[in-house]
Amino acid sequence: MYELLTGPLLWLSAAICVVGLLYRIVTYIMGLHWQLDRVAYGANPGRGLKGAALSILAWLIPFGCRNWRVKPGFMLMFFGFHIGLVAVPLFLAGHAVLLKEGLGINWPAMSMGMADALTIIMLVSACFIIGRRILLPEVRIITDFKDWMVLAITVAPFLTGFMAVHEVGESYRFWLLAHIITGEIMLVAIPFTKLFHVVGFFLSRGQLGMDFGIKRGGARKNFAW
């Protein structure tokens, strides 16, 4: 079971994730249209790229855009959630071992204390996300079943992984298998759900940055994101 899950199924889910995301990127870019979008992408590549970069960076840097500055609480939750979400799976010592054994790559790893801290921050942030969805009327009205599913898919590998590492209860093996299965579900879900924003964020925010950079005043002034 363990061999199957960490062998062929892991490969398959990782491949689906990567190929699916590549498909997303290619179809997004192919689907852009200078006249229908009313953005002269081709005529002004320099201004476009600059606008895209500024727009993306403003949102990736704390306090970088106006909405982070006016909503610092949300900003904290956002970074707390996403830093753990990206860094822990990539640099967990246990995952580095898998890479070493499977591909022979010496992959850098973070300390267990760090991984724990980031995971806890991520899970606490998830609680805030859940709280917002339930408590705030402006978020509740737009929240649907899919939003809950995506949140569950995202949180499950972290919760199960944390349980496994800390051997909560007696069933390490149960939590470990649950962790691998939920992790693989997440990998497969990424290209087919809103989780495709792992690339979609860069594409979509970059596109609006290009829109401002090329067409909406970028020749004069950088937009104050």
Binding site: M30, G31, L32, K71, V139, I142, D144, S204
Partner: peptide
């Protein structure tokens, strides 16, 4: 096309647009 389709599909329903 892809820009509008992505906007409709990817919206995370976070509600950050409300106050804007």
């Amino acid at each position: 096309r892809s820009r509008l389709k992505t906007w409709l599909e990817m919206c995370a329903h976070c509600g950050l647009c409300a106050d804007s």
